[in-house]
Design a protein around this nucleic acid. Structure first.
Length: 774
DNA sequence: TTAGGCGCTGTTTTT
DNA sequence: CAGCGCCTAA
């Protein structure tokens, strides 16, 4: 290893790195070498005889965890870093809970519900309580539940908390507490934890089982926490418990970059740290190595508008650099075009690569205009965030099978797959099963296993029994085969893979490829040895828990791909780029219209703006549009108030019409390198663009067939391919093929006069076989 | 029982 | 401009 690793540090950094014992708070300004300090400190701990097994480092993103691990390895050389416990709060606790969850009555292979799963459970319960889900919106209710858990509030406490109850009363949603209680019970019954449970139950475990607490207190003698300003009360309490014995707690953060209060994070955790422990050492990293003076000065001046910050003075030795460019465009599409044009221009003029650019926006929905313009310019890009791979419907469906194989208690997942692909177990049947399950207080799956005793008959019983048998066979296979083989078998037995393969539409093709990709990822998981601490758990259960915690940003090998990156500002935290475009700087968009009602909210938006600005190393472009499409309608927007908060001397406003509200972009005669010559006039612009929508090819030519006088439907079982048939409406036709289960056959019939080929469900649409009498 | 069409509604950020 | 829920045809 590099023996001189301390030499690369400045004085403050070295002080932070070499303070090994006791509570330590590192206030790390943007670009001040925070990750370097953290990783070097871990290495230094190990150089001073601390066993890797005794170090716990918690981060907020998998990406940060991965980077930290890699950098420690690099400093140390060899594979000493292998035994470190580095990960996100959620993934580390999920791993710990895997061994101790049974103490709380959960299976160790508990399912992890993502936000969609959780909302779906909430919705089910709202419906069960006969409440109106237009009023008790699952989203809102789930957010309340989530907030409760993040403050370690149980359903009982929630229902007895005066203040909380007042809030719910005022919102006219007095039953949220009841829903929370039922939600918690349902998740428990399902053997499932949501994201918040991973923290909440961890706390419950440590509180309720002193021997477990002692075990981890002993194990994690040194604890480090990244992005401490974004921790919530649950995380705070857990850390406090874990660190109570040794008090070797090192937190790193920057109150100016606290942007997750909507997720329950409280900035108080970092502001109060000094009061929480005796003899806290505070080290401030104030030298910025990332940005030009211009960029840093703008950032500093804007953030100074916030109150109650930890005092610090971020400075840099870097050059002054270009002024920040402020650009006003007429529409959101012009904004997209400007950014793409400028990227092309900057690549030529200053020899940047695609990967040197980032486009940062407040909301995911803003990505569209940039995608379009980048595509038109043939500039490769990648969008981070949005729907992650694992949230796609086909993936969730497939994973639901695997989840049920691992954890049959998981009712949510069973419901997802019990009739996918269609096997004749419909809404009515599912409702019955739910009722039996609730009445008898047994799991959904147990009702399925005993379907006959519960009085299911005929086709339904058969369908249920087939389903149960199939799932049983998967479970048996899992004992002998690895996760990949079982997954492949699931794809085959359920016909899912074949079905998608036969779907030749673009979306069908994409879905098929996604499933293949999923199978590959399972294969990779089973075959690659992990270096994740003590986790050498290659089981399917372990795999499922891991992937639920994966984000879109964690996917793929993007490090080396040369693409422009598009993401929300939230997603950009911790990253840096030579050239940054922060776009959509308009009132009600940024700051968000949802966050301008209180000083606290607005200050968080301002911190977000601070984060956006400080991502830039050498060039920063800020853009806003006079009008943009929102809710499918053209909307006029005022420039963001943050624009006025920036010091003039570092801003080049010549592309923003000089001053605020100075005419519109089109009339001002301002152009950027002559690239906006084809801009539309305002009059043209206001005309809505109506796209010519080609009418769907109508297969239904006027089908006014009069049925034969002796028309009588024939038994579907008698139908065969090649037969001539008559339909009451479509007239005469020929059966081309038949598919589907025997009790639910679907015929493809060609009706020459009735509009061509049609799929007919024989149970519902009647066909008569035409008997050739001569 | 299911798919697909139509109209209503809601829109921030994410582990 | 979605994505969802409800209704209808098959």
């Amino acid at each position: 290893m590099n023996a001189n690793y301390l030499d690369d540090l400045n004085e403050r950094q070295r002080e932070a790195v070499t303070t090994l014992k006791g509570p330590l708070m590192i206030i790390a300004g943007a670009g001040s070498g925070k990750t370097k300090v953290l990783t070097t400190r871990i290495a230094h701990l190990m150089r001073n005889g601390v066993d890797a097994f005794n170090i716990l480092a918690l981060t907020f993103t998998n990406k940060a965890a991965k980077e930290m691990k890699e950098r420690v390895e690099k400093i140390l050389g060899g594979n000493e870093a292998r035994n470190l416990y580095i990960g996100t709060f959620h993934s580390v606790f999920a791993r710990l809970l895997r061994s101790d969850a049974p103490k709380l009555g959960y299976p160790s292979d508990f399912t992890i519900y993502d936000a969609d799963d959780a909302k779906s459970v909430v919705k089910t319960i709202v419906n069960e309580l006969n409440l109106d889900d237009k009023h008790y919106k699952p989203n809102l209710v789930y957010n309340r539940i989530s907030a409760a858990k993040n403050s370690l509030m149980s359903p009982e406490e929630y229902q007895h908390d005066y203040y909380v109850q007042q809030e719910d009363q005022r919102a006219n949603r007095p039953l949220v507490g009841k829903i929370y209680e039922m939600y918690a019970k349902r998740c428990f019954k399902n053997g499932a934890m949501d994201f918040d449970d991973l923290l909440y139950k961890m706390y419950v475990l440590l509180k309720g089982f002193p021997e477990v607490l002692a075990k981890y207190q002993h194990k994690f003698k040194y604890i480090m926490i990244d992005e401490y300003q974004d921790t919530n009360p649950a995380q705070y309490e857990i850390v406090k418990l874990l660190g109570a014995v040794h008090e070797n707690i090192c937190v790193v953060g920057d109150d100016a970059q606290s942007i997750y209060s909507f997720r329950g994070a409280t900035i108080q955790n970092i502001l109060q740290f000094e009061k929480d422990y005796d003899d806290v050492k505070v080290v401030k990293l104030e030298q910025n190595y990332r940005s030009t003076k211009s960029i840093l000065n703008v950032a500093n001046e804007v953030i100074a508008k916030n109150k109650g910050q930890i005092e610090k003075n971020l400075w840099t030795d870097n050059t002054e650099g270009d002024k920040i460019k402020l650009i006003r465009t007429n529409t959101d599409n012009d904004e997209g075009k400007f950014v793409s044009d400028t990227i092309a221009e900057q690549k030529l003029r200053n020899h940047y690569a695609n990967r040197d650019f980032a486009i940062l926006y407040r909301t995911n929905a803003q990505s569209r205009s940039f995608e379009e313009s980048l595509r038109r310019m043939a500039i490769p890009y990648r969008i981070y965030g949005g729907i992650s791979f694992y949230q796609r419907k086909e993936i969730k469906d497939f994973l639901a099978y695997l989840r049920v194989i691992i954890n049959t208690r998981d009712e949510e997942s069973i419901k997802r797959i019990i009739n996918y692909p269609v096997r004749g177990i419909g809404k009515t049947t599912i409702e019955k099963i739910t009722i039996y399950s609730n009445e008898q207080n047994i799991t959904f799956w147990q009702v399925l296993e005993n379907a006959r005793e519960f009085g299911f008959k005929g086709g339904t019983l058969e369908a249920i029994e087939n389903f149960v048998t199939m799932m049983h066979s998967f479970r048996v296979q899992l004992e002998k085969q690895n996760a990949y083989d079982v997954a492949v078998q699931v794809g085959k037995s359920t016909n899912i893979v074949k079905e998608l393969f036969n779907d030749k539409t673009t979306e069908g093709l994409a879905r098929y490829e996604n499933i293949q990709e999923l199978l590959n990822s399972i294969k990779e998981f089973t075959e690659t040895p992990t270096e994740d601490g003590e986790l050498l758990d290659k089981s399917l259960g372990s795999y499922l828990q891991q992937i639920t915690l994966l984000t879109d940003a964690d996917q793929g090998n993007d490090q080396d791909s040369d693409v422009v990156k598009l993401m929300t500002i939230h997603a950009a935290k911790g990253l840096e780029f030579p050239v940054v475009f922060t776009v959509g700087l308009e009132e009600s968009l940024f700051p968000s219209g949802m966050s301008i009602n209180s000083r606290e909210e607005l200050e968080e938006e301002r911190r977000l703006f601070y984060v956006a600005v400080t991502r830039a190393k050498s060039r920063l472009f800020l853009t806003y549009a006079n009008s943009r499409y929102r809710f499918g309608q053209l909307q006029q927007n005022e420039p963001s108030r943050f624009i006025d908060e920036m010091p003039d001397q570092y801003i080049d406003r010549s592309y923003a019409g000089g001053m605020r509200n100075a005419g519109n972009f089109g009339g001002g005669g301002v152009s950027w390198g002559g690239m906006f010559d084809k801009r539309k006039t305002p009059a043209q612009q206001s005309t809505p663009v109506t796209r010519t929508v080609s009418k769907p090819v109508s297969s239904g030519a006027a089908s006014n067939h009069t049925p034969s006088p002796n028309f009588a439907a024939d038994d579907p079982a008698q139908m065969e391919a090649g037969m001539d048939v008559e339909h009451q409406k479509f007239g005469f036709g020929k059966i081309m093929s038949l598919e589907g289960a025997p009790n639910n056959r679907i015929a493809t019939v060609v009706f020459p006069k009735g509009g061509g080929e049609k799929k007919i469900m024989l149970n519902y649409a009647k066909l008569m076989i035409v008997r050739n009498s001569g």
